[in-house]
Amino acid sequence: MSTLHTVNKSPFEKPSLDVCLAHATAGAGVLLIEDGVYAATKGTAVEDRVKQALDSVKLFVLGPDLLARGFTEDRVIDGINVVDYAGFVDLAAEHDKVQAWL
């Protein structure tokens, strides 16, 4: 059983990402969307925690939400995959279920 977790809240506004990472089991996928995409950007106060998470889960970030907020792919932490909407669908299909962290 592997789960795709989605996080749509800014890591500076709500603890959703931390709580998600604390519950995500090894091999799970975590997709950052909407205001959640800020966690994927380099140089933030949460960067270390996000990098640490890469040891146990796969991290993805939704490209259109990044671009809307003024961030291009080169601003994303290495190891996090940028996906488009089609990629979102593929991820949802590849995992057994999708669990949202609001």
Partner: peptide, 23 residues
């Protein structure tokens, strides 16, 4: 302040999310 600073980032392009770019 806080996440409010994100409002002012340059290069915002909302074409992909179908929302009005008000930057």
């Amino acid at each position: 302040v806080d996440d409010g600073v994100y409002q002012l980032t340059k290069g915002q392009d909302t074409a992909g999310i179908g929302m009005k770019n008000f930057s």
